[in-house]
Design a protein around this nucleic acid. Structure first.
Lengths: 241, 241
DNA sequence: AAGTGGTCTAGACCACATC
DNA sequence: ATGTGGTCTAGACCACTTG
């Protein structure tokens, strides 16, 4: 029977949740796989079923686990799509899948801000991508993406044209990196000359700027991205309570 | 003992939650007051304590109730502040409370879009406010606010200069309207000449536009508001999982 | 001390998915 | 049929708040 350190003031189920989180982050059950049944885990930790359920519910709320009635409890896969387009409304048919094209791929010294976020030494080499996303054949979003380098070496080589339209599944397949959480910071700016050209807009045109930092299960920042698109196409809804 | 219709496929606690929601919306316990103890409610409905707790937890998650250990369970007051400024970063000292000034107050026929949202007949009279919010003495946000009219008659009369800096507490005190939920839609645009003048910016300057619809406990739209501020001061962070 | 919500238990039974 | 998660019960005990 596994014992759990119970800090005073910490409830049993919270301690159990931490313990389970540690086992998941350590890779005991890889993303997408099922963890043992509630009964098994409860017995293993010597607690009542309800207490273990409470712990697992907590982790599910936090997005670490996914519970499926009748099938089991699973470690969540990475974020499915890259829902960058949810911030924009372009006239084109929404059902049509957006297309991606890699405009540039270079190994460069990361700027200070990027290096700090990615936790690689300042000036250390990183992989930089420039990417254009199109909707209905029209250029819509321009992205600049920084990836830390030993981890993403697999993307520095090979044919980028064969990558497909979604990056996160690619990260998972080719580099074993699962994006689990992301923080987007929205701001406003103006397009530089080259950026405007890529988006077929006049230079200096107003743009919405979304700066994203993406994290894996262990909380490491694994992607630093800036996305720009026509400010007039920007549209976002927030519900507050 | 109160009985609850249990639709097939609906769990007991969900049905209980609906029943409690109805009693709250009906005003059985006004905002800010405590509801009876869990034990009492459980007995009243003839269910186990755990089941009633589950129902109340659900309503708490939905923001309808607020649970306080040792004191009781309370019907939530309206949204505390009007956190419109969370969308912006102005240079001024953040600790300093923003100030408000009413620029105009008129009873007018509501435009079609507003009338539809407020569920008053198109062209029926409504109260329109124009309001300027300043931070550190500098004009920052310009607001246009529409309120449905029999309900807000108390604000059509009296001295608007004495209103103070927050509107939602005012709605509660003077009109008995509690704002419980709001939906903000963000976009970018350009300032008209008069708007720019009020904000001390050049005409045509880019602005962020936040369109808010606020709802009371019963789900009625009780406020329609558009807020504009310098697009370059706009700044918002979203976490996704 | 009394009343409130929060935690934990042990067990029964139900609903869903799979073989 | 079996195994999974979801619901519900009845009760004990703990932690926090108030008079």
């Amino acid at each position: 029977m596994r014992l759990v350190d119970t800090e005073p003031g910490q409830s049993r189920y919270a301690a159990l949740a931490s313990a389970m989180r540690a086992r998941i982050v350590a890779g005991e059950w890889p993303p997408g796989s099922a963890i043992p049944a509630e009964q098994t885990l409860a017995a293993e930790h010597g607690v009542a079923l309800g207490t273990m359920r409470r712990a697992l519910d907590l982790l599910a709320e936090q997005g670490l686990l996914e519970r499926v009635h009748g099938r089991g409890t699973f470690v969540r896969q990475g974020l499915s799509g890259a829902p960058m387009l949810r911030f924009f409304r372009f006239g084109a048919d929404e059902r049509e899948a957006p297309r991606s094209r890699i405009l540039a791929r270079d190994v460069l010294a990361a700027p200070a801000e990027v290096a700090r976020a990615l936790a690689c030494g300042p000036g250390e080499p990183a992989l930089r991508l420039k990417r254009l996303r199109s909707v209905g054949g029209q250029p819509a979003l321009l992205e600049e993406i920084w990836l830390p380098l030993p981890a993403f070496q697999a993307l520095a080589d090979g044919d980028a044209a064969a990558w497909g339209d979604l990056l996160y599944p690619l990260y998972a397949e080719r580099c074993g990196v699962h994006v689990h959480r992301a923080v987007d910071t929205i701001g406003f700016g103006n397009l530089g000359a080259a950026q405007a050209r890529a988006l077929q807009l006049p230079a200096g045109h107003p743009c919405a700027r979304v700066q994203r930092q993406a994290y894996d299960l262990a909380g490491r920042c694994v992607e630093w991205r800036t996305t720009r698109g026509d400010a007039h196409a920007f549209h976002y809804t927030v519900s507050i309570t």
